[in-house]
């Protein structure tokens, strides 16, 4: 039974790492702008498409060593999707700031449909095979089985998360982001260029989303234009579970949601002696979410925000 548990824990960590990376995008944008960026799932979807485009372009041009091609394509996808995020914020969200919270949110929903349809029209709606970046090989240890892809995902995700934490807590630019999410008015009075902080957040969030997309496509071996919808919703859930606006909260929420899903599938039938099947996984996962919110409405690591501070923050 311990082997089984360990095995499931590995699966939970791999999928949880991906949820966490996407949740970071939701939570950072919310932290700074109090906006739920519904287009975020599409940045996740764009990641593998941009990667494939650049990677096959490099191969077409003669290419370098395959490893180098991959690395260039990965970095380029981060930058391109990040810049797209910045552009979308600049042209689709910023002009609407003065009109309350509903208008930018609708704009985000529209953006999501635009991006998804654009990919569907240009590349086609069918799922496409995505070759694994790290060749998949099983590693057996402690009675469980791990694949190199899972290890790669976990390592890369943890690396990105640690990097982000250091960046936000230890650099000048990170101070901008934290200040802007505390209060726009005060930060701009103190000479912080709030719009730059917003652009920065809209670069990092989508970029991380794109990375998660590449990991995901490489894990499951396919990509398709609709892949961002369901997983975007789940990552959004993870962000709320951890406390939306909180960066460590998003990471925690991602891993937690992964664990709830996996252990729901793995242990519900066993614990209920077969009466509750695996098909109840989502019922279980979302029941947990509701329970957490009942006791901690701001999420696990979220700050309790009173109506007063919300108003102050909203008042850009």
């Amino acid at each position: 039974m311990f082997d089984y548990f360990l095995q499931q824990l590995i699966f939970a960590l791999a999928i949880g790492a991906i949820y966490g990376l996407i949740a970071l995008g939701y939570t950072m944008v919310y932290g700074v702008m109090r906006l739920i960026n519904f287009a975020h799932g599409e940045f996740f979807m764009l990641g593998p498409y941009v990667y494939t485009f650049i990677f096959s372009g490099l191969i077409g041009l003669g290419g370098l060593a395959p490893v180098l091609d991959s690395v260039i394509a990965i970095v380029a996808s981060f930058v391109i999707v990040g810049l797209l995020g910045v552009a979308i914020e600049r042209f689709a969200y910023r002009p609407l700031r003065a009109y309350g919270r509903l208008a930018p949110m609708l704009s985000a929903l529209g953006m999501s449909i635009v991006l998804q349809s654009a990919v569907r029209v240009t590349v086609g709606p069918q799922p496409v095979h995505f070759p694994a970046i790290v060749p998949s090989a099983p590693i057996e240890s402690l009675g469980g089985m791990v694949t190199t892809v899972q290890v790669g995902i976990l390592a890369a995700a943890v690396l990105l998360m640690v990097g982000l934490t250091l960046f936000v807590n230890g650099t000048r630019l990170g101070i901008w982001i934290r200040a802007a999410s505390e209060s726009w008015t005060t930060s701009s009075l103190l000479g912080i260029r709030v719009n730059r902080a917003v652009s920065l957040v809209f670069f990092i969030g989508p970029g991380l989303g794109a990375m998660a997309g590449i990991m995901y496509a490489s894990y499951y071996g396919i990509m398709q234009p609709t892949m961002g919808s369901v997983i975007g919703l789940k990552a959004f859930t993870a962000a709320i579970l951890g406390g939306i606006g909180s960066i460590p909260g998003a990471m925690l929420g991602g891993f937690l949601l992964g664990a709830i899903e996996v252990f729901g599938t793995a242990f519900l039938p066993i614990l209920s002696f077969g009466y509750i099947g695996t098909e109840y996984r989502d019922v279980f996962a979302f029941a947990v979410l509701i329970l957490v919110l009942l006791f901690k409405p701001a999420g696990l690591l979220g700050e309790t925000v009173s109506e007063e501070t919300t108003v102050a923050k909203k008042d850009y």
């Binding site: 699966f11 999928i15 499951y220 369901v230 899903e261 599938t265 793995a266 099947g277 695996t278 098909e279």
Partner: peptide, 17 residues
């Protein structure tokens, strides 16, 4: 007999059981 969702992509936990 195991039920999944039509949109599921991750079956790893299910397969382990």
């Amino acid at each position: 007999t195991f039920g999944t969702n039509p949109e599921d992509v991750d079956f790893s936990a299910l397969i382990a059981s």
